[in-house]
């Protein structure tokens, strides 16, 4: 749906300052119907990329193309996009209801449709009680939720969210994630940025990872997880006694109640198991340690899954 082609963005500071390269020849695409997570540490270039997609800023080189499914001109394309900026700040003196009407009218919705959709979604976001109040009285979580409602009010084909979960409490995060999944299941393409890997891991089927303004990974989450090698095994044993020095242990930790926890490499796992079974030791647990998506990402250096 969105083709981000060879984009470079250099911010030139004024006078004698050094230019700063925020994005360096970055290309990726957001396929129709997908739920794509846009990952990267703070300052990796995520928000800059989203601003370029939304035409808030222009790239130094490269271009953004929208598929014909979104429309043939800017008006049509933007009618089919729902965008929620990071830490949205709204018109403080408007009520929630006025704000939603404002946003709805800008996307060519008539008053009745706006009312119907607000009635449908506001209870779902638990802000129906607050709609007659001015936005300056809203909490951060409520602002995030009304912002999200405004984003989906016109039923766009693609939803672009910049750090939608930041600043929300765990319940608020869960609720918003549920709604994002629900909207995606209803056929919308979702593209959202976050610097929190578990959020992406939990709900996205595809991930784009930026590192210092460069594309570090673009592909499916499952493919990336498959690439991850088993790192270590952790074995908890009751009173194991001495372990022969021929068995290489990475770590031995004696715990209360005669328990001992061993960390071994995959190559030494079977040797240790054999030794323990032979000596009739009681094995409480055996865990395979796989790196989390977060660990994989922060060790990723420019990989690309062609799927």
């Amino acid at each position: 749906m969105i083709h981000f082609r060879e984009i470079t963005k250099i911010f030139r500071s004024e006078l004698l300052g050094q230019p700063f390269t925020a994005l360096s020849n970055v290309s990726f695409e957001v396929p129709e119907g997908s739920m794509v997570g846009f990952l990267g540490a703070n300052g990796a270039g995520k928000t800059t990329s989203l601003k370029i997609i939304m035409d808030f800023i222009r790239p130094t080189s490269g271009n953004v193309e929208f598929s014909s499914a979104l429309g043939s001109n800017r008006q049509e394309i933007f009618r089919n996009i729902g965008f929620l900026p990071e830490r949205p700040y709204f018109y403080q003196n408007l009520t929630g209801h006025e704000f939603l009407s404002f946003m709805g009218k800008l996307t060519d919705l008539d008053t009745k449709t706006i009312e119907d959709r607000v009635r449908l979604w506001a209870p779902r976001f638990k802000i129906d009680h607050a709609l007659p109040r001015e936005l300056k009285t809203y909490s951060k979580g409520m602002l995030q939720r009304i912002g999200f409602l405004a984003t989906i009010l016109h039923e766009p084909k693609i939803i672009i969210l910049d750090e939608p979960l930041s600043g929300l409490d765990p319940i608020g995060r869960k609720e918003l994630k549920d709604v994002i999944v629900e909207v995606h299941k209803a056929g919308k393409t979702v593209f959202f940025s976050s610097h929190i890997v578990p959020d992406i891991e939990e709900i996205c089927d595809r991930v784009i990872f930026l590192k210092n303004g460069n594309l570090a990974y673009d592909g499916s989450v499952s493919a990336l997880m498959k690439q991850a090698k088993v790192q270590d095994f952790i074995m908890t044993v009751v009173a194991p006694g001495e372990i022969p020095s021929t068995i290489k242990l990475k770590e031995r930790l004696d715990l209360p109640e005669s328990l001992t926890r061993f960390t071994v490499t995959p190559e030494n796992k079977d040797v240790l198991l054999n030794h323990l079974v032979t000596n009739k030791k009681s094995i409480v647990s055996l865990e395979m340690m796989k790196p989390s998506l977060e660990e994989i990402f922060y060790n990723t250096r420019g990989t690309h899954d062609p799927q």
Binding site: F78, P85, Y89, F90, L106, T107
Partner: peptide
């Protein structure tokens, strides 16, 4: 500065 402009021009508004 407050990014309210993003909410408006992210819509089909020249």
């Amino acid at each position: 500065e407050s990014r309210t402009v993003y909410m408006v021009i992210a819509r089909p508004v020249p």
